[in-house]
């Protein structure tokens, strides 16, 4: 059993890490906003942690704080993400649907180019030799795990209080929500910024986890993959992002024995999942449960 965790520890933690990115898209989706900005904040958060963890000027601070440097990095990423999230959110959230998604894609690309041109970010090589919090990759679950639980709790809590009703009202009908006195823009920006903050902190935790950080972390492909976690997992369930990430992250590893053709099969499974589980894994499970209980009742 120890061999299993030795081999798949990294993979397990990666699933939780990616599920966090999925959740960061889930927040704005709760208010009906499709944002693909997460990966940009993830990238920036990673850079914050990477710079704070390696910059020579901060060496005394690191020595003084020891392990507490990591929470400080998260805080740095959080503050930056919230400020930038508000700055981007207010103008961008006037857009709807696909237009908002495209504006956030544009934002991520501009961030990428800007980062590549910032000397402090280390150019194309990026930043490496980032101080490690733990020896084993599996131990990083102590970073991502609590954050994931916290994010889940937030989603659940929001869903069960006034704020959640406001989010859902905005999702279902902006005009009507506005007419009923719901602060449409405020709620949209709040949902958006929550997602940005979560992605930023996830990035800050990921830089030590990967030991290196570079501009390739924030690609367009990664943005779409995060969206895929939510959709494949099931966009109406809070467990959806985790299920989606679990499937999509582990799939290439499960297919390893196929060698050269594994990525072809990976694509086939992706298409099949879309076709046969149009409500996502959680939606499929719910339908299955309904059918089973329906049958049970009839018998």
């Amino acid at each position: 059993m120890s061999g299993f965790f030795e081999n798949y520890g990294f993979l397990i933690v990666t699933i939780v890490q990616q599920a966090l990115l999925g959740l960061s898209i889930y927040f704005p989706l709760m208010a009906g906003q499709l944002s693909l900005a997460s990966i940009g904040f993830y990238s920036l958060g990673g850079y914050v942690a990477a710079v704070m963890g390696t910059h020579p000027a901060l060496a005394p601070l690191r020595e003084a704080l020891g392990f507490w440097m990591f929470p400080l990095e998260w805080l740095g990423a959080l503050v930056l993400s919230v400020i930038l999230g508000i700055a981007v959110g207010y103008p961008a959230l006037r857009l709807r649907g696909i237009y908002l998604a495209l504006a956030t894609v544009a934002f991520v690309q501009v961030v990428n180019v800007a980062v590549l041109n910032m000397p402090i970010a280390g150019g194309a090589v990026g930043i490496f030799g980032i101080p490690q919090a733990f020896e084993s990759r599996l131990d990083y679950i102590w970073f991502f795990g609590p954050l994931f639980l916290l994010a889940l709790f937030l989603v659940w809590r929001i869903g069960n209080m006034g704020r959640g009703l406001a989010f859902f009202a905005v999702r279902e009908d902006e005009l009507a929500a506005g007419a009923m006195g719901v602060a449409v823009t405020g709620n949209k920006v709040t949902a958006f910024v929550l997602g940005c903050a979560l992605a930023g902190v996830t990035g800050a935790m990921s830089a030590p986890f990967l030991n290196t950080w570079n501009a390739r972390q924030g690609t367009f492909d990664a943005s779409v993959t995060c969206l895929a976690y939510v959709l494949i997992g099931g966009s109406r369930s809070i467990w959806g992002p985790l299920c989606g990430a679990a499937l999509l992250v582990s799939l290439p590893e499960l297919l390893r024995p196929l060698k050269d053709s594994r990525m072809i099969l990976n694509g086939i499974v992706l298409v099949a999942a879309c076709v046969y589980l149009p409500q996502g894994i959680m939606g499929g499970l719910a339908a299955l449960r309904a059918r089973l209980s329906g049958r049970g009742g009839a018998a």
């Binding site: 390739r216 972390q217 290439p252």
Partner: peptide
């Protein structure tokens, strides 16, 4: 593959 996570998995 082309990314960092892929390299870690291959190494493991």
């Amino acid at each position: 593959a082309g990314d960092e996570a892929g390299a870690v998995n291959a190494f493991q």
